[in-house]
Amino acid sequence: MPCSVASIQIGAAIAKLLFGRVEPSTLVWLRLALAACVLLVVAMPRLRGRSPRDWAAVTAYGAALAVMNISLYQAIARIPLGTAVTIEFLGPLTVATLGSRRLRDWCWILLAGAGVALLGAAPSDLDPVGVGFAFLAATAWGAYIVLSTHTGRRWTGISGLAVGSTIGTLIATPVMLGAAGWVAPTDVRGLDDPWVWLIGLFVALLSTVVPYSLEMIALRRIPPAVFGILMSLEPAAAAIAGMLVVGEFIGPVEWAAVVCVMVASIGSVRTSHRS
């Protein structure tokens, strides 16, 4: 899981460097499309003989992928990467907490919520639209964890990820075209730049092919709740990637928020382990 965490956040930080050349939703579409091409060649999924439930699972999974990535990229275009992922992490933590009815487990999510509330008390004003997109990404991330488990059980290997990425690309296409004003790619979207395609491929490998393949394999072996709390490194990894790659330095209050979320995650892990 640490490999997946580092890969995703470094990819997101590199993607943010391209926002001056290409609109965030367009970059998400490019990332999903390139990742789908790679995964379809590698996985060669079997499509014949699939049941309606197989297609329903992978379609919902692809929709979660598209919404999660579009909303996250729209968020990090407006607020620091570390801040966005700290908010987004409420999704996995909620999945972990919903698996229990014990009061002490809900205390952990309250601590995480307090950490996110600290972000609003930071001296620097956060773009409310960016914060809203981060909360949408949190919801989609929680759905992604649950749907990834269902998809992984119905589609062998990484074939579910390959088909889901293809469906996610189709879902992201009208969003990309709408963000670009429904004009030719050579006009404003930056897709006529070979450098954008090269970096897009690199981001697709770092942020989709490698981590999502690892996560789908992991979710076949561990429950969604455990997976959600094992991702506790995400906020700190995002903050560090933002500093090293993008030059985004968050203040003491933001770091306190990150620590609150991570402590809540570690507390959930320890509580679940004792159980």
Results as ranks from 00 to 15, higher is better:
Pro2Arg: 08
Ser4His: 08
Val5Trp: 05
Ser7Thr: 06
Ile8Ser: 10
Gln9Tyr: 06
Ile10Asp: 09
Ile10His: 05
Ala15Tyr: 02
Leu17Asp: 03
Leu17Asn: 03
Leu18Val: 10
Phe19Gln: 12
Glu23Met: 14
Glu23Asn: 13
Ser25Ile: 07
Thr26Met: 14
Val28Gln: 00
Arg31Met: 02
Leu32His: 01
Ala35Phe: 01
Cys37Lys: 00
Leu39Gly: 05
Leu40His: 06
Val41Asn: 02
Val42Gln: 02
Leu47Cys: 06
Leu47Arg: 09
Leu47Asn: 02
Arg48Trp: 11
Gly49Ile: 04
Arg50Met: 12
Ser51Tyr: 01
Ser51Asp: 06
Arg53Thr: 11
Trp55Arg: 03
Thr59Ser: 15
Tyr61Thr: 12
Gly62Val: 07
Ala63Gln: 02
Leu65Asn: 09
Met68Arg: 04
Asn69Thr: 04
Ile70Glu: 03
Ser71Met: 13
Ser71Arg: 11
Ser71Trp: 09
Ser71Glu: 09
Leu72Glu: 10
Tyr73His: 08
Gln74Ala: 13
Ile79Met: 07
Leu81Gly: 14
Thr83Glu: 10
Thr83Met: 15
Thr86Ile: 01
Thr86Tyr: 05
Glu88Trp: 01
Leu90Gly: 11
Gly91Cys: 14
Pro92Glu: 12
Leu93Ile: 15
Thr97Leu: 04
Gly99Asn: 00
Gly99Tyr: 01
Ser100Cys: 02
Arg102Thr: 14
Arg102Phe: 05
Gly113Pro: 08
Gly115Asp: 11
Gly115Cys: 01
Val116Ile: 09
Leu118Ala: 06
Ala122Met: 13
Ala122Tyr: 02
Pro123Ala: 12
Ser124Asp: 15
Asp125Gln: 15
Leu126Asp: 05
Leu126Ile: 02
Pro128Phe: 01
Val129Met: 09
Gly130Lys: 14
Val131Lys: 03
Phe133Met: 12
Ala134Trp: 11
Thr139Ile: 15
Trp141Cys: 04
Tyr144Arg: 12
Ile145Thr: 02
Thr151Val: 13
Thr151Glu: 14
Arg154Ala: 04
Trp155Ile: 08
Gly157Arg: 05
Ile158Val: 13
Gly160Arg: 05
Val163Ser: 15
Val163Lys: 10
Val163Gly: 10
Gly164Leu: 10
Ile167Trp: 06
Ile167Thr: 05
Ala172Ser: 12
Ala172Met: 04
Pro174Asn: 15
Pro174Thr: 13
Pro174Cys: 12
Val175Met: 05
Met176Thr: 15
Ala179His: 08
Trp182His: 06
Val183Ala: 13
Arg189Trp: 11
Leu191Trp: 08
Asp193Arg: 11
Trp197Tyr: 00
Trp197Phe: 03
Leu198Tyr: 07
Gly200Ala: 08
Val203Ser: 10
Val203Ala: 13
Leu206Thr: 04
Val209Phe: 00
Met216Gly: 03
Ile217Arg: 14
Ala218Ser: 14
Arg220Ala: 04
Leu230His: 07
Met231Phe: 07
Ser232Gly: 13
Leu233His: 13
Leu233Asn: 09
Glu234Ile: 12
Ala236Arg: 04
Ala238Leu: 07
Ala239Glu: 06
Ala241Asp: 05
Gly247Trp: 06
Met262Leu: 12
Ala264Lys: 03
Val269Phe: 15
Ser272Arg: 15
Ser272Ala: 14
